[in-house]
Design a protein around this nucleic acid. Structure first.
Length: 262
DNA sequence: ATGGCTGCTTTGAGCAGA
């Protein structure tokens, strides 16, 4: 089972990129999408069905919005839940579904704007509420994957220029501490379960030729519960999608789980 | 130091992203 997470920065604009990936040899079985930026009635259900995938989604106008798409043969999704019951929020940033026995959660963490700003405090509260909610979820679903755009670079190795970014948004102490809090629930950063090239990133600014110069950050993650982590066989970043014409500013991250792992 | 791209919006300059 290949599981992926991708911030598409508008599903309307990125649908051709997504369909191209889904029809390729390394197409994932399940993809969590973030920043779909469209309302539910505009979700491209038919185009994805045609490609062999089912969808569940939680959209809103213009901003945010998350979805999970998965191969038709994985069957009906169970216990679909929009949002966090511990944290009522008009922003659509969280969606969970049980697919083929795995609790899959698509998450779009707040950006936070600037350290100590109002949006930063919202980010920290949002994460605290997610932490509480995940405590329950892990009890109910021992096979769980938290996938998405975390808007946090967990370590200095995840930043092209750690000195310049030091203490700033996406890598401040409080954000990293909250990230480690999620890890302490028994979740593993699937990317780091395997050797990876240095300077591996999942986001590059659209400006200043950042992608070309590989000036990026690793802020998109797939965290696996102990049960899933023990059956993971590989992980990586599908960097080439960032190089397509009219790309998202994020590249997909992925991890492979042994089929017999459950 | 600033703004740099891109996508969104009662379509057009301003916000948001990271």
């Amino acid at each position: 089972m290949k599981l992926a997470a991708w911030n598409v920065n508008s599903l309307k604009v990125r649908l051709p990129h997504l369909l191209a990936w889904l029809s390729s040899e390394d197409a994932p079985d399940v993809i969590c999408l973030q920043e779909i930026k469209l309302e539910d009635h505009n979700f491209p259900v038919a185009a994805l069905e045609e490609a062999g995938y089912r969808s569940v989604f939680a959209g809103q106008k213009a901003f945010n919005g998350v979805a999970i798409i998965f191969r038709h043969e994985l069957g009906e999704p169970c216990d679909v839940q929009k949002g966090n019951p511990c944290f009522p929020d008009p922003q659509q940033r969280l969606l969970a579904a049980t697919i083929d026995g795995i609790r899959v959660i698509s998450a779009y963490f707040p950006n936070g704007e600037a350290v100590e700003s109002e949006k930063y405090l919202y980010k920290l509260s949002w994460m605290k509420a997610l932490h509480e909610h995940l405590t329950d979820e892990l009890r109910r679903y021992p096979a769980l994957a938290l996938c998405g755009d975390f808007n946090i670079a967990p370590e200095d190795a995840d930043i092209h220029d750690p000195l310049r970014w030091s203490g700033g948004i996406l890598c401040s102490d409080s954000e990293r501490q909250a990230f480690r809090g999620l890890i302490s629930l028994g979740l593993a950063d699937s990317f780091r379960l395997f050797p990876q090239p240095e300077k591996s990133f999942s986001w590059w600014d659209y400006r200043q030729w950042s992608f070309h110069k590989n000036l990026g950050l690793r802020i998109d993650h797939i965290l696996l519960s102990e049960q899933l982590a023990s059956s993971a066989t590989a992980s990586g970043i599908k960097r080439e999608l960032r190089g397509y014409e009219r790309p998202s500013d994020h590249a997909p991250v992925w991890t492979e789980i042994e089929p017999g792992g459950l």
